[in-house]
Simulated assay, not measured.
Amino acid sequence: MGPIGIFDSGFGGLTVFKEIKALLPQYDYIYLGDNARVPYGTRSYETVYHYTLECVHHLFDKGCRLVILACNTASAKALRTIQQRDLPLYPDLRRVLGVIRPTTEIIDQFTVSKQVGILATSGTVNSQSYSIEIHKFFPTIEVYQEACPMWVPLVENNEIDSEGARYFVQQSIQRLLTRAPAIDTLILACTHYPLLLPLIKARIPSHIQVVSQGPIVAKSLADYLHRHPEMEALCTTNGTTQFFTTEKPENFDEKAALFYGAHVQAMQLELV
Rank of each mutant, 00 (worst) to 15 (best):
K219V: 12
K219T: 14
S220L: 05
S220K: 11
L221C: 03
A222P: 12
Y224G: 08
Y224H: 08
L225E: 11
L225W: 11
H226N: 13
H226S: 13
H226P: 01
R227Q: 13
R227F: 08
H228V: 12
H228N: 15
P229N: 05
E230V: 12
E230L: 03
M231W: 02
M231E: 01
M231Q: 02
E232A: 15
E232K: 11
E232R: 08
E232M: 11
E232F: 07
A233N: 01
A233L: 01
L234Y: 03
L234N: 02
L234C: 04
C235I: 01
T236L: 09
T236V: 05
T237H: 13
N238D: 09
T240I: 05
T241C: 00
T241M: 09
Q242W: 09
Q242S: 08
T245A: 03
T245E: 07
T246N: 09
E247Y: 09
E247G: 13
K248R: 12
P249K: 03
P249A: 02
P249H: 02
E250Y: 02
N251E: 04
D253I: 12
D253Y: 07
D253M: 00
E254R: 11
E254T: 15
E254S: 03
E254V: 14
K255Y: 04
K255H: 10
A256P: 00
A256Q: 06
A256M: 04
A257E: 09
A257R: 05
L258C: 04
L258W: 01
F259Y: 15
F259V: 14
F259G: 10
Y260G: 09
Y260M: 14
G261M: 02
A262S: 13
A262C: 09
A262Q: 14
V264P: 05
V264H: 05
Q265F: 04
A266D: 02
A266N: 03
A266V: 06
M267N: 14
